[in-house]
Computed example of a mutant assay.
Amino acid sequence: MITGAHAILYSADAEADRAFLKDLLGTRTVDAGGGWLIIGLPPAEVAVHPTDGEPEHELYLICDDVEATAADLRARGVGVDPVTDQGWGLLTAIHLPGGGRLGMYEPRHPVAAGS
């Protein structure tokens, strides 16, 4: 029986991104050994989209109010892209200390997480 999912982000500064995500998410963390921090995620869901190109994978955080969450993050000094209306939801990206971006959106579609 599958009991969860494990997402991996690759980073130019993994230590900084781990500390950032630990603070951002405020969820349980565990040390998998040698300081290798694993951060708990909020309830999650997975979707499979068709592609004509090479298969790829993406990770997005979901929030109830993307404008308010983005404003809170900006007030804390976090870089956040402008919010755009995609029809299916309001989308932005959080700038990670290691140089990457992590998508965040407010869905307008039904969500399976927490059901």
Rank of each mutant, 00 (worst) to 15 (best):
E15Q: 06
T29R: 00
P55I: 00
L25F: 03
W36T: 01
F20Q: 11
Q86T: 14
I62C: 05
T27D: 00
E54Y: 01
D85G: 10
T51G: 03
L90Y: 05
E58K: 05
M104K: 08
D85I: 10
V46T: 15
L102S: 06
G53Q: 04
A32L: 09
H49F: 15
V30H: 08
A44M: 06
A5Q: 07
G79F: 12
G33C: 08
D31I: 00
A70E: 09
E54F: 04
T92S: 08
I94M: 10
A112C: 01
V78H: 02
G53N: 04
A70V: 12
D13F: 08
P42G: 14
R76V: 05
V30P: 00
A12C: 13
S11R: 11
G100T: 07
G99W: 05
S11Q: 10
I39V: 13
I62F: 12
P97R: 09
T92Y: 00
D23L: 02
G89C: 03
G114R: 03
L91D: 12
R76F: 00
H6T: 15
S11P: 03
E58G: 08
P97M: 13
E15F: 00
T3P: 11
E58F: 10
G99P: 03
P107V: 01
P110S: 02
A32M: 10
G98N: 12
T29V: 06
V30A: 12
L59T: 15
L25M: 03
A5P: 07
P55S: 01
E58Q: 10
E58Y: 04
H109P: 07
A7N: 12
P107T: 05
A32V: 05
A70L: 08
D64N: 06
A47H: 14
P107W: 04
D31S: 02
L25V: 04
S115A: 06
R18E: 13
G33M: 06
D85Q: 11
A44C: 07
G53I: 03
S115F: 00
G103V: 04
A47D: 14
H109W: 04
T27W: 00
Y60F: 13
L61T: 09
V78W: 01
W36C: 07
D64Y: 03
A5L: 07
D13S: 15
G87Q: 06
P97T: 12
D52A: 06
K22T: 15
C63T: 15
T92N: 01
L90G: 02
I2M: 01
T3D: 09
P107N: 09
L24F: 02
V66E: 03
R101K: 07
E54H: 06
G79S: 09
V66Y: 04
D52P: 00
D13E: 14
I8A: 10
P107D: 04
E54I: 11
R101I: 07
L96P: 07
D65V: 07
A47V: 15
E67P: 00
G114P: 00
L37C: 04
L102A: 11
L41F: 01
I8Q: 08
G99Y: 11
D17H: 10
